[in-house]
Design a protein around this nucleic acid. Structure first.
Lengths: 177, 177
DNA sequence: ACACACATGTAAGGCGTTACATGATTCC
DNA sequence: GGAATCATGTAACGCCTTACATGTGTGT
C-alpha cells in the first residue's frame, strides 16, 4: 500500500468522483496532512482499476470525455483493512523542531528567537483553522470526519502556542540572568 | 537549501564529525523529526565541501581512512542564515489524521476505533520520551536544544492523549444513543 | 473573442530509501 | 578465527513534484 492509495480510496468512499474532482476534494480537505498531485492520482486510478478495487464509468458529455470512479466490494474491503491496520508508518517531519534543536545549541538568545518565530507561525495557522470552523458554522454542518480533524487541529495548535509562551518566559529569564 | 543540508550543517556545528558519526548522531537525536540516510549524507558532504561550507581533514589510522569534517566560516554563516529564515516549508504529514478523517466518515463506531488506536500509539510514544528524559536525568544534563525539544514532545503528546480521551467520551455517547 | 474552469494525462528531474559492496579494526 | 563495529561509498528503484500538452465547455 503506497502513500497515495488510501487517499484515493478514501475520497472515492465519500462519493464517486473523477480524477479531477478527487484532486479538488483533496485540496479542500486532506492535503493539510496528506497532499496529492495529478501525477500521483491518475496513475493510481489506473492501477486501482487494473486490480479491481475501483470501477470507472465513461460519462461522455458532448465531446468531453470524463470517467467517474467508484469503489468495488474489494475496494471497500481494502479501505476497511487499511483503517483497521496499525499505523505502521507513523512519521513526523517538523522543520520547526529541527530549528529548535540547533538553535538551542547556539545559546538561549537563539533558542528564544526560534521559539518566538515558531509561535508566530502556529498562531497564523490557528487563525486559518478558526476561519474554516467559522465558515462551517453557517452553511453546512461539519460532518464527523472533518469535524473531528478540525477539532484536533485547533486543540493541538493551542497546546503548541501555550508551550511556546511558557518556553519563551523561561528562556527570557535565562537570557536576562 | 535541500532537506538534508541543515541537518548536516547543524550536527557539524555541534562538533566536527565523520559522515559515519553524523549518521549516528542523527539516529540518536534529530531523526525523530527529520531522518537522514547514508545515501543523503555522503553526497551532501561532498557538495558542501565543493561549495566551501565545510572542510574535511584526513585522519588516517593505520590502513583505515577517515575524514572528519568541520564548518568553515561560510558554513557557520549558512547555518545561522537558515536558523533566522522563516520556516518556509512547514509541511505536516500525519497518517493518523488521514485515518481519522476517513474513519469518521464511516460512522461513529469507526471513528471511535480510530481515535482509540491513535491514543494507544501516542501513549507508547510518550513512554519512550519519558524513558529518554529519565536517562538524561542521571548522567549528563540535557542541554538546551535537546532539552527544549524533549519538553515540547512531552507536552504535545500529553495534549494529544488528552484530546483523544475527550473525543472517545463524546463518540461513545454518540454510539450509545 | 477571450478567459477561465473542466478534464486527462505525460515527461523530466529531484529526492530519498534500501540494499549492496568494500575493506579495516576490535573484541571475544 | 569469527562477529560486530567502524567507515565510506554506489546503484537501483520508487515516489513525488512540477511543468507542460491537449482539448472541451461556459461565461462575458
Amino acid at each position: 500500500m503506497n502513500a497515495i492509495r488510501p487517499v484515493v480510496l478514501g475520497h472515492l468512499a465519500l462519493c464517486p468522483q473523477t480524477g479531477y474532482e478527487i484532486k479538488q476534494s483533496v485540496d479542500r480537505s486532506t492535503r493539510y496532512f496528506w497532499p496529492a498531485s495529478y501525477g500521483q492520482i491518475y496513475p493510481e486510478l489506473r492501477r486501482l482499476e487494473e486490480e479491481g478495487l475501483i470501477r470507472g464509468r465513461e460519462e461522455a458529455q458532448g465531446g468531453r470525455r470524463r470517467v467517474r470512479y467508484e469503489l468495488t466490494r474489494d475496494g471497500e474491503r481494502a479501505l476497511r483493512d487499511w483503517l483497521a491496520s496499525p499505523a505502521a508508518w507513523e512519521e513526523i517531519r517538523d522543520l520547526g523542531l529541527l530549528k529548535l534543536f540547533f538553535a538551542g545549541a547556539a545559546g538561549p538568545e537563539s533558542a528564544l528567537a526560534a521559539v518566538r518565530s515558531m509561535r508566530e507561525e502556529r498562531e497564523r495557522k490557528l487563525e486559518l483553522l478558526l476561519a474554516i470552523e467559522a465558515a462551517g458554522d453557517d452553511g453546512k454542518e461539519l460532518t464527523l470526519g472533518p469535524g473531528l480533524v478540525l477539532d484536533y487541529g485547533l486543540s493541538l495548535y493551542r497546546a503548541t502556542i501555550d508551550w511556546c509562551r511558557a518556553a519563551e518566559e523561561r528562556l527570557a529569564q535565562e537570557v536576562g540572568s
